[in-house]
């Protein structure tokens, strides 16, 4: 019997929210170190959503966003995607490379690789938190980046979960440094993987 995202109990939702909370706290610390800035965070908001709902949570289909995609393997399998609003690009480029860009099409290979690295560090801290809580091994792939309209980016996870007719977990988190940046962590664990997470926590 595998647990479907659609049928989680309130207690299981709380467990996921707590994992998100701890993970986001670690990610905020990692981001603060990277940007040499004080970074605080809002209370994470967890939602369970289908493709169309995720796109509206991300600001609508044509909203430009920066997405970093990673694949989870070993005990927990599935994909995670970190999605930042567009202005996060310039916060990072200004701090780390001393430059800004006026439009997404100006993004260079170096800019892209800086982002992939940030995605890598932030999502690793997230997953380390989950790993420590659950005692499970979770590996992540090298990151991949896409900067485009939210709807177009979501077509990739949407087509993956479209194959199962399933929903995704989405955690909204604001990181507050010199500017307030909204991020979303979209998680699409395989159904067996959700069971494995809950079992490890007795949920």
């Amino acid at each position: 019997m595998s647990t479907s995202i659609n049928e989680l109990s309130p207690f299981q939702l709380d467990v996921l929210k707590e994992i998100g909370n701890i993970g986001a706290g670690n990610a905020a610390t990692a981001l603060a170190e990277l940007l040499s800035d004080r970074v605080s965070m809002s209370v994470p908001e967890l939602s369970i959503a289908d493709a169309n709902e995720v796109v509206s949570l991300l600001g609508g289909p044509e909203n430009p966003v920066v997405a970093i995609l990673l694949t989870m393997s070993e005990d927990v399998k599935g994909i995670i995607m970190l999605v930042f609003e567009e202005k996060f690009l310039n916060v990072v480029l200004r701090t780390l490379l001393g430059k800004e860009i006026d439009s997404l099409s100006e993004m260079s290979e170096l800019d892209r690789s800086v982002f992939m690295e940030i995605g890598n560090i932030m999502s690793s801290t997230y997953l380390n938190a989950m790993s420590q809580l659950t005692g499970l091994n979770i590996s992540i792939s090298t990151p991949d980046i896409c900067v485009d309209m939210a709807g177009a980016i979501m077509s990739y996870p949407a087509s993956l979960f479209g194959m199962r007719g399933d929903k995704v977990l989405i955690i909204k988190e604001d990181f507050i440094g010199q500017e307030r940046i909204t991020s979303h962590l979209v998680m699409l664990p395989d159904e067996d993987s959700l069971d494995i997470i809950f079992r490890s926590l007795g949920a």
Partner: peptide
């Protein structure tokens, strides 16, 4: 039909 316009937003792999 008529003067109407159909729109679909943000096709990615779709």
């Amino acid at each position: 039909s008529g003067d109407d316009v159909l729109i679909t937003y943000a096709l990615g792999s779709c």
